[in-house]
Simulated assay, not measured.
Amino acid sequence: MDKEDDVTQNRWPTKENALTAKERYKAFRENCIVPTLKAWGEYRHEHLINFVLPAVEIYNQRKRESSWLNFQDLLMLAAALLRDNAEVRQYFQKRFSHLLVDEFQDTDPIQVEIMLYLAGADTTEKDWRKLMTRQGSLFMVGDPKQAIYRTPMVLRQSPYRSSRVFFICLTKEATCSHGFFQLQLLLFISLASAKVISHANTTIWV
């Protein structure tokens, strides 16, 4: 049920039979399977969270006792520090006046929150989605087609094939509405250029 709603037409008696089966399968998946999985996910979510929370608290207590932080802790604490302390945000904005974020498709909401706190004009605004960046303070480069994370089938009613692609588009909409410019770069490689690139790759890797 997690596969594309496509059929191999030459394995059916007629093309019409194949297309009819495809449409029926698509309707069955969208009207039955997807709602059922969504309802099941919503039902089990509370039970799973209640089951896991005690272990999470024990883990956090052990980290506090040992003065340890993992990478996720560093991100969340950094975001909270910048969000709740205007003077801290001002200090780091002066220290890092311009940000270049490469491979933006590999970021997550916490990292973008930090990024916009550092580039935001209003150092008192706590909602990163409402921040307008300082002119020239932020440059992002990313390719949604390179997103490697998939979205569960129950979420595929979104036009985006990946949760990271969805997040990229959400961030793009938020930033473009606050004065950003979007540049779309297209690369055309001729046969001669392809030979040059092939030779360069061979030279680099040998």
Rank of each mutant, 00 (worst) to 15 (best):
K15L: 13
E16F: 11
N17Q: 08
N17P: 00
N17G: 00
A18M: 07
L19W: 05
L19S: 06
T20Y: 10
A21G: 04
K22E: 10
R24D: 12
Y25P: 01
K26V: 00
A27V: 14
F28W: 12
R29F: 11
R29G: 07
C32R: 14
V34P: 06
V34E: 12
P35T: 08
T36Q: 08
L37W: 10
K38V: 04
K38Q: 10
A39P: 07
G41L: 01
E42K: 15
Y43A: 13
Y43E: 15
R44L: 08
H45K: 15
H45M: 13
H45T: 12
E46S: 15
E46N: 14
H47I: 05
H47L: 09
L48H: 01
I49D: 11
N50E: 15
V52F: 10
P54G: 10
A55F: 11
A55T: 05
I58Y: 00
Y59S: 11
Q61Y: 11
Q61E: 15
K63Q: 04
R64D: 14
R64G: 10
E65Q: 14
E65K: 14
S66Q: 15
L69T: 09
N70D: 15
F71C: 07
Q72H: 13
L74R: 12
L74Q: 12
L74P: 00
L77T: 05
A78L: 13
A78N: 09
A79F: 01
A80E: 12
A80Q: 10
L81Q: 09
L82Y: 03
L82V: 04
L82H: 02
D84W: 03
D84E: 13
A86F: 00
A86E: 10
Q90Y: 00
F92I: 05
R95K: 12
S97Y: 06
S97L: 04
H98G: 01
H98C: 07
L99A: 04
L100D: 06
L100T: 08
V101Y: 05
E103G: 06
F104V: 02
F104E: 03
Q105L: 06
Q105T: 07
D106T: 13
D106N: 14
P109K: 09
P109M: 09
I110Y: 09
I110K: 09
Q111R: 09
Q111N: 05
E113C: 10
I114D: 05
M115Y: 00
M115I: 09
L116W: 00
Y117T: 07
L118A: 03
A119V: 05
T123I: 09
T123Y: 01
E125N: 03
E125Q: 08
E125G: 01
E125I: 00
D127K: 01
D127A: 01
W128G: 02
W128N: 01
K130G: 03
K130D: 02
T133C: 13
T133I: 01
T133L: 03
R134F: 01
R134E: 00
Q135K: 15
G136Q: 05
G136F: 07
L138E: 07
F139V: 08
F139A: 04
F139E: 02
M140Q: 14
